[in-house]
Amino acid sequence: MDFDWLFLVEIFLAGLGAGGLYALTALAFVLIYKATRVVNLAIGEMLMIGAYLCFGLATAMNLPMWLAIVVAVIASGMAGAVLERVAIRPMLGESPIAVFMVTVGLASILVGVVELVWTSEPRRLPEFMPNTPVMIGEAFVPPKVFYGFLVAAALIAVALTVFRFWRGGVALRATASDQQTAYSMGINVPRVFSLSWTVAAMIAAIAGVIVGAVGGISSTMGVFGLSVLVVVIVGGLDSVLGALVAGLFIGVVESLAGGYLGGEYKLLATFLILIVVLMVRPYGLFGTHEIERL
């Protein structure tokens, strides 16, 4: 039998599509990590909150979809700021592991809140993306995946530009590279913390809306965060470039594993890559290698 090249191309493109979403979410993750050194396990749940807010606004309050998305993103940003202030700020100076566990607890609280308000029944977001199939050459790309990828790419580009040139972005990068020096140079570090959580929550909300549009929303959609965790570790926790490259890479690997081996191999493949990376390059492909001193 001839090798089905078209199949490979389609699977590859699907993988890139999913990878774009991983990259976007990983960007939110890295943002928080760079500014506050918090490994945020609740990132998947922040996605979920964004998607549910959008769902609630669009169905219960009958807002048009675009407005619902905008309001949901702003509301998520505020929720992010509140979470940072209430649960993360008091942990300043505690061991990273304690802070990590706080985010685990937060994840559980967010799931509970969603189930309380919207029940645990799976829902569907109203359709808002174009429905005409997209063909790249002969390969079929599902429109949601295609436009999702475009949105993710555009957003990543905007975010990168902003952090390059905007004052807040510069402050954030300064804080990331050396907190104490940044403080002494007159940068309001607590505000940077707050800012990073706000922006990360907003990015996560957009990712959540796209993920929800593709696969539906439910209180268990936070598991998406597990794959993102792999992405950031592989890419290097503090590397934006790493998040983007690893996001696409993991997306393609998952897709290939699913296409040629079967659905049960998807998670296995990504986590095997994680183990290999941890053994060979524990600080990730592009991460900073920290030298420990006594």
Binding site: I11, L13, P142, F224, G259, G262, K266
Partner: peptide, 16 residues
């Protein structure tokens, strides 16, 4: 076709 639990995107499965 087996799909992993919590699968988001089914494009791969659809191609098969």
């Amino acid at each position: 076709i087996m799909t992993p639990p919590g699968a988001v995107d089914v494009s791969t499965e659809m191609a098969r």
